[in-house]
Design a protein around this nucleic acid. Structure first.
Lengths: 162, 162
DNA sequence: CTTATTTCAGATGAACTGAAATGC
DNA sequence: CGCATTTCAGTTTATCTGAAATAA
């Protein structure tokens, strides 16, 4: 992970319920940011009647076509049953389609429909803007460092449920 | 998972569903880390029969005694009713106590009980260890930068619900 | 009068556990 | 046979919306 971070620089000195105390834990800081993101995302997603979990599944499928429902479940830390039901919902809405994996006929390979791709593209700009707003105070170099840190954290925590 | 055995060099060269693609969004990366944290925290909290939200409320109260239920709700992006019910549950379990705010008799000031403080202290070590595991690959300087970035993000996203 | 906080009363949805069918 | 995936069924629990009481 290169790191390559140079300068931690003081980025904020705003006083807020989130940081009125010197140093709450990083765990808590991450949770707070995720809560704030989710509130914004829910607002964004509500018009298209998608939950954050559904949206996540769709964007994961856009990057990695043909995952099975069980694989998507592991990615989002929910049970296979929960994800299976969610995929069924998306299928009924015409956003994904499934076909039996010819190499392993137990599995169902899931793909986005063209409708889903169009819909996701319409939201890309808004999601990008949310991300830009979020990292507004960070330099490009800091953003890269931030991404590296997050990746390191995710890898360090592993896949605990399995 | 594998890795983490030798290779002190690159923190991440594990191929994983979380980073098989070059650069998913920071939004997604944060969500993934938070999901991983929550899975670990749920495991940690299950023995004491606390949800992540309840634990968060308790630790917030430890830092900022005497918040009202409505304030706690805003901090966690849930409705006042939801937080009110959760605080009632904690009160019945003897983990918090409430008293009317003498300065504004509509409000109920919430405080931890001694029992709650003891319980939280018992878990501090385990939570600290989880955090240490998570940032294992980061230098102290990087950890500080990471904290700054998170704080900047949280502040940039504001309190959308109000 | 309007607003904030709390509380009561449903309604809902999203998740879970358990179990069965299928196929490797 | 054991294990993974999917699907069906039932349940729980957390959260929400709506409405009323209180007090500033």
């Amino acid at each position: 992970m290169s790191a390559s971070v140079g300068l931690p620089d003081d980025v904020v000195d705003d006083v807020d319920i989130a940081d009125v105390d010197p140093a709450p834990t990083l765990l808590y800081a991450i949770k707070q940011v995720e809560l704030a993101i989710r509130a914004h995302m829910d607002d964004l997603l509500r018009p298209m009647n998608l939950t954050a979990l559904q949206y996540t599944a769709l964007t994961v499928l856009r990057r990695r076509d043909g995952l099975s429902s069980a694989e998507l479940a592991r990615n989002s830390f929910v049970t296979a049953q929960t994800m299976g039901e969610m995929i069924t919902t998306l299928e009924r809405r015409g956003l994904v389609q499934r076909r039996v994996d010819p190499a392993d006929r137990r599995r169902m390979l899931t793909s986005l429909t063209d409708d889903a791709r169009v819909m996701l593209r319409e939201y890309d700009a808004r999601v990008d803007e949310l991300e830009r707003t979020m990292v507004d105070g960070l330099s490009p170099r800091q953003r890269n460092a931030f991404r590296d840190y997050l990746s390191a954290c995710r890898n360090a925590l592993g896949d605990p449920a399995h």
